[in-house]
Design a protein around this nucleic acid. Sequence first.
DNA 1: GTTGTGACGGGTC
DNA 2: CGACCCGCCACAA
Length: 109
Amino acid sequence: MISERKPTIFEQKVYDLVRAIPSGKVCTYGDIATALGIRSSQAIGQALKRNPFAPEVPCHRVISSSGKIGGFYGESTGPRIDQKIAMLREEGICLQNGCIDFTRFRHSF
DNA sequence: GTTGTGACGGGTC
DNA sequence: CGACCCGCCACAA
């Protein structure tokens, strides 16, 4: 059981944006942060990491601006990352040497 | 109330 | 391209 805390307006906005990402598309922390009007992508990671909407919010569609997967879904930077990559592939997203070619899959808010 | 840290980004060196 | 610093939000101790 995950510790549920009261999601702040900020988090709710993050979840809403991430949830709005269509299948086969991805987005970066910076995009979300900018979309929310802030400059802190860390807060995005916090919100996603704390995300009480696990499968509801496709955190795996949120990646670093570097194209790296970062580390979401479950514990943290672990074997689940591979599962996420496989899932992204299923959605039509290709991995370039461990990096997502978000240049072709970047979602526009 | 203060401090430190975190799934980060961007700019600068 | 790698390393360092700053910024920014939320949460735990």
